[in-house]
Nucleic acid binder design. Structure first.
Lengths: 347, 347
DNA sequence: TTATCCACAGCAAACATTTGCGAAAACAAT
DNA sequence: ATTGTTTTCGCAAATGTTTGCTGTGGATAA
């Protein structure tokens, strides 16, 4: 055992330059590697005296465990994969932010990958996750993904897969979705309650299952009411297209809708541009309601009445499910986050 | 050497269950591990015949190299750290998306960490990067970061650090910034050219260096003109505060500004809400110009005239700098991305 | 024949860590 | 003195890869 100054001297002369590894620590202390390892993690086998010595030197030498060695040895990691169609998106960036926050609290890290809405890239991303032996992966599928076997295959080898937002249709797997149907029903009911009878629904890409689902539920809810509703439906693949399509409906004064339902934030931006261009006033001349992530509708004035399906809530729930999975609850489960009605002034 | 069917038989019986590692490949082929390793990477020492055999089996067994082992052995990784104050932010989410795109092309992966605008968390994030032996880190500092030594220390050990957007003031380090001064000058000049003389500048947190810089340059540019400008300046720490402050200026008809300069997207949203609430018309009653990431101003009608400092461009440039660094150009360098004027209808 | 060279492949160390097992010392109980 | 127990620590194998060095045949040249 060294006196402190001796220890310091020794370190300065021989050790300071070396990388701080267990081996080097053990060498300077004349102690075995395993003892150092155990001391550092407070293993009961090790005496307090030894622990103190080891920890002091470790601090002095800025020892930081080598993640790669640990992961190699233990064959797991604290890295979670996140595969999304794109980061820079109303919904996903808050989804990712939420997961990151939770992850940090529990000492996980995130490998974030965008698929550029491309099934092939998505598969590559999955491969990267596999190669990095991630502890689990969150995935929001692209709209073109047909084949989810590779995902399920990875799950079979013990890596939890949590499908989020855009999830496969039939398979028995873990899914976290926003309450699509609920959000749509709330929107439709709000319209019914407002007594507007000429309704325009602007929906997204017609090939997406989410579009189909919302369209169907929206239609049904209106039809099942006792009201005589005049419903027009149109589809747009982009914000610009939404503007264009909406303009067509607004330009004809005879059939101008009284209220517009926007399926998503992207659609909403397009629709609002169209409304601005026609100089119609919301809600005097025309009403608007949207399903949204919550932020965008607050930018307008009056704020747009909307139904929130929050990316943040989804991220949090997904992470919770992941942790449950990690602690053994591996059975397939489908969870949804509730939709919330937010009164703006636009209806 | 096996005939194909023999090979397949053997694999089915003994190998299929095993993990696909070099060792297992070598065992089933009765070949040394090193030969397998070299064959897989087309080392000239290995005969074509052997290579073929190895590659076929590797494909059959879904061999995927173990990243941890590789990283441990080579003591480096293809993971880049990205530390930002927050992901869910007008600027940073596109910044991150841009880096991710570039990274993917060059086979890097991203470890994304938010500091929650908290210097301590930022330090933890840096530590995580260190522990994971990242190949480099992009960092946008929090507004509270005083101490950048830890960053520079990491750089000394060979890990490139690229400061982005929010960068340290004086140190000799690699910085990628948007052309703040230029963007501000362009804005100021646009105002001068518009012949509006009563100007309100709504700026962000007064403690941020970016705020100080923009304020100073904005003032100077207006003062250095020959015009008689009536400039009011106010500061807001949030979108809500911007609304509040702006309303104060708008409510008094006597001193109501003719044009409002918004320093950022966040400020812009606040200002626009104030304008909506007062029912003033843009640009008839009041003009608006902003410095922005480019997306938000297009949501209004008329679109807001703005000067773009693009997160995407910044991300791309930062990544390029990182690659240059990796290939030897380690000297400190400060790069800026140009600002671009975008005509809306709001001025 | 002998020396030289080449193509091909294996040996073994190294990377940093974890962990089951065993062992030595100290101490207590019989 | 013998046996048993506890405390404390070290040995060595194992994780999957890379890579410098070595070795073996065979071909070519002297």
């Amino acid at each position: 055992m060294f006196a402190v100054d001796n220890l310091f001297l020794q370190i300065n002369s021989t050790t300071m330059k070396q990388k701080a590894t267990l081996k080097n620590l053990s060498k300077t202390l004349n102690i075995s590697i395993s003892t150092v390892s155990r001391a550092l993690k407070n293993h009961p086998d090790i005496s307090d005296e030894t622990k103190k010595k080891v920890k002091e030197l470790a601090a002095l030498m800025d020892y930081e465990p080598n993640t790669y060695a640990i992961n190699l040895r233990t064959n797991k990691s604290n890295i979670l994969g996140v595969i999304v169609p794109e980061i820079s998106n109303f919904f996903y960036h808050s989804f990712i932010a939420a997961i990151e926050e939770e992850a940090r609290r529990l000492n996980y890290m995130l490998l974030i990958l965008q698929s550029a809405n491309n099934a092939e890239t998505e598969l590559e991303n999955l491969k990267l996750c596999r190669m990095n032996r991630v502890a689990g992966v969150f995935v929001a599928l692209t709209s073109h993904t047909k084949e989810i076997k590779p995902f399920l295959q990875l799950e079979e080898t013990g890596t939890p897969i949590i499908f989020c937002d855009k999830v496969p249709d039939f398979e028995a797997c873990n899914k976290i979705c926003s309450a699509d149907a609920e959000a749509t029903i709330i929107s439709a009911n709000a319209i019914l309650k407002s007594n507007k009878r000429k309704v325009l629904a602007v929906l997204g890409n017609i090939d997406l299952s989410i579009t189909k689902k919302r369209e169907q539920v929206f239609k049904e809810t209106l039809e099942n009411s006792n009201e005589q509703i005049n419903l027009e439906i149109t589809h747009a693949n982009s914000s610009e297209e939404a503007t264009h399509k909406t303009l067509q409906y607004l330009s004809n004064n005879m059939q101008r809708p009284e209220v517009i339902f926007c399926m998503s934030d992207e659609i909403l931006t397009g629709v609002m541009k169209a409304i601005y261009q026609t100089e119609l006033k919301v809600p005097k001349d025309i009403s608007v309601i949207a399903i949204s992530n919550g932020f965008l509708p607050t930018l307008f004035s009056p704020e747009i009445t909307h139904v929130v399906t929050s990316g943040i809530d989804l991220g949090k729930l997904a992470f919770k499910r992941m942790m449950d999975y990690q602690s053994g609850k591996t059975f397939a489960q489908e969870l949804t986050i509730r939709a919330r009605f937010v009164e703006g002034g636009s209806l």
